[in-house]
């Protein structure tokens, strides 16, 4: 993945999570992956188009998703969740939108023109994602509620 794209995503993930979550947030070691990879359980996906093609996946376990969504809802003085209902899914989708949106804004300021697709959310057990021909950058963010992986796969349009 183009070097210039990396930092905007790392910074956006950190900034947004720090804004909406309480407690300490740590960034794990970045790495690359190309084979099909397991999805933790709840994954919000946003497509990218424009100068590039690709997608961003915000991935976490169901348990982490419930806790993260609850914290975000409580921040807006709403009831915490007991299970991952529609409200919870909408909240996680919004989190993915916020992270990707901020990253794309930063990239726009650097002169890269990206468009976003509306986010979609997948939940389930034993899911895998495979992107042929493009490797993914994994940005692990470690929260007190668990781990969120920002999985970015972008390639230049040749």
């Amino acid at each position: 993945m183009r070097v210039e794209y990396i930092n905007p995503f790392v910074e956006a993930a950190y900034n947004i999570l720090r804004e909406v979550m309480h407690g300490e947030i740590k960034r794990g070691e970045l790495y690359l992956k190309s084979t099909s990879m397991p999805v933790l359980g709840v994954a919000a996906i946003i497509g990218l188009a424009g100068d590039v093609q690709g997608r961003v996946l915000v991935d976490m376990t169901k348990d982490t998703a419930i806790k993260v969504a609850s914290t975000m809802l409580e921040g807006m003085e709403m009831e915490p969740l007991t299970h991952l209902n529609d409200m919870g899914k909408a909240t996680i989708t919004e989190l993915a939108n916020m992270i990707t949106g901020q990253a794309v804004t930063k990239l726009h300021n650097l002169g890269f023109k990206f468009d976003l697709t509306p986010p979609a959310i997948f939940t389930g057990d034993n899911m895998e994602i495979a992107d042929t021909g493009v490797e993914a950058l994994i940005v692990p963010m470690i929260l007190e509620h668990g781990k969120i992986e920002i999985n970015v796969a972008i390639r230049e349009r040749n």
Binding site: M1, R2, I6, L32, S34, E135, L137, R155
Partner: peptide
Amino acid sequence: VLFEYHDITHPNVVP
């Protein structure tokens, strides 16, 4: 020059 963070053992999308 286009610099990429990339592992050469992964698929290489180059012309």
